[in-house]
Design a protein around this nucleic acid. Structure first.
Lengths: 328, 328
DNA sequence: TTGAAAGCGTTACCAT
DNA sequence: ATGGTAACGCTTTCAA
């Protein structure tokens, strides 16, 4: 349609100014008179001039796109945890004029590819969601590339540039609640990032902790459903479950209906994350709320600080809170 | 850490070959002997050479990132429709070596910004999710920029480069089912992209269509909840609801529990989209299945065709299917 | 405040 | 099959 694109040279020629002046009109750094700037901007809109971003990136040696890397859960189920995190990230980025690329990563396979990408300098910064070995690889990549990064979640190799959830505190509250409401046979269904959750749960459970049974869950609705069936077979006396995430818990709720297990009378279930859906299940899911939106928001704010200044960062902990609804 | 980055010139000098040869080693087009290519690749890994992507983009006049633009529903609720679409897109892209940028858009505000971006040539192609005026603007932008694009969903101004769902057929089946199961007071709760759904529903409803009541819904869980309360107040005789999307329907299910309306005995509810969660609600949601994953997959395949060849595209229609579970 | 011109790091054409 | 080199379109000194 438009055919060729207008270059800065052609554009400058038409306005009878130099390319340098045009460039300055769109930059904040360059000194230029208000009147010429304004006239250039007007003319640009009129004639349809837009700086070629590749040339600009090359010249400035840097882009303004940031990337989010997160472990993909696949089995073809969407990851609501990431979805809500993304919401906060997008909302915040939206005010900054930066672009977001998203990169779910699987097991090992495409790491080499990301490697090239990160090292090639496309990103001005990256956000890494912790949880798998891939996350660690990415982190060390960012470090060697000297690329600004923020990690969301706990990572043993990183302490300052993180946004972490208070998983331990949250799980503690859940354990305590379960104990105080008279539950006697607790099970923990695991997902990702479990260490602190287990620890917190144990101490919240107090004396009950020695009866705690750990069960390997997963992170999909189907996983949750499967988990409860197995649990009830192997440990029929179970009367309380804490899940590593809400999606799992929602799957468990479903299985409970099918197995005609009364919730919360026979079985208390508490999730983790407080995704939007958990307030709408039946029964409504009790859960440890993580404020995912806020975590996303803070992660980008921290990252931008890192990019724009040399200021030292301190790790940020997002409070968690036990929300009791109907399932426990 | 690494300090300076190795440029092609320096790298080539160390290997005692020309930059042209190095460039060819990483390209598929250039003719080069297998042995030199291999040695260059090895050395690159060893010395840590990575082509600067900005320079490469500039030189080739094109990038390999594609963008997804979709109307953001905001009210701080994640959009599960997009989430599942995204899953298919990512999965497919993952095999192609292209990068994905995602851009939710709101009302009007940031269009100018996208404009600049699209026109500046960062993208090798874009996928637009239909549904709002923003989508239309974006489409015409892509057209004037002569940029390969695919639109997901119906758009009046576009006919060939689309991936559409058979909304009409799906709604028809839902209407027919509702009629055949003896419902007498149907209401349709609207969201986005409603025209064909309404049309299909009407014809499926047959004679019952004249009793159809339209209700303005939305797209969040909260919207759904609110909708049912209002509906039952204004039209207490209502005994069947078709929702424009599952999220809305899930909200309605929740409200039904609270209002002690028996589902499906007193009220049949059918959703639209078949997001993963709808198989796990209680009662499980009957819905018109849209195969979002597949739509995402096809959209990127079509887009890549468009980018790589001049072949004419034909619009693709994704079949829809009524899935009866428990809610109707 | 403005202009001229030297990069920025690749790719691709033209030679050899 | 390989090398030399002119683009690619912008930003940023340095001078005026």
């Amino acid at each position: 349609m438009t055919g060729k694109k207008l270059t800065i040279k052609e554009f400058a020629a038409q306005l009878e100014v130099s390319t340098a002046t045009v460039s300055r009109a769109f930059s904040t750094r360059g000194r230029i008179s208000d009147v010429t700037r304004e006239m250039i901007i007007t003319k640009a809109a009129e004639l349809g001039y837009h700086a070629n971003i590749h040339a600009s990136n090359l010249s400035r040696r840097g882009s303004s796109t940031i990337a989010l890397f997160y472990p993909a859960i696949s089995n073809n189920e969407p990851d609501y945890f990431i979805t809500e995190l993304l919401l906060g990230i997008n909302e915040t980025l939206h005010h900054t004029g930066k672009m977001l690329q998203i990169h779910p990563f699987y097991n090992g396979s495409n790491m080499a590819f990301f490697r090239d990408y990160i090292l090639s300098g496309v990103f001005s910064g990256i956000i890494i969601v912790a949880g798998t070995n891939g996350s660690k690889e990415l982190l060390s990549l960012a470090k060697t590339a000297n690329l600004p990064y923020i990690v969301i979640g706990h990572m043993s190799t990183e302490s300052s540039r993180t946004v972490v959830f208070d998983n331990e505190g949250g799980a503690y509250q859940a354990g305590k609640y379960l104990r105080q409401t008279g539950r006697e046979h607790p099970v923990y269904v695991s997902g990702h990032l479990d260490r602190r959750k287990k620890k917190g749960l144990r101490s919240g459970l107090g004396a009950l902790a020695e009866k705690l049974i750990l069960f390997d869950g997963g992170s999909s609705l189907a996983d949750g459903k499967r988990a409860l069936r197995t649990i009830m077979q192997q440990q029929p006396q179970t009367d309380a479950i804490l899940c590593a995430n809400d999606v799992l818990a929602l799957g468990i709720l479903k299985a409970a209906h099918e197995l005609k297990i009364a919730i919360p009378e026979q079985l208390a279930v508490i999730g983790f994350d407080n995704i939007k859906m958990s307030g709408y299940s039946h029964p409504a899911l009790s859960t440890v709320s993580l404020n995912l939106f806020r975590a996303g928001e803070i992660a980008v704010k921290q990252l931008i600080k890192l990019i724009d200044s040399t200021e030292q960062l301190r790790p940020i902990k997002i409070e968690s809170e036990l929300i009791i609804r109907e399932s426990a």
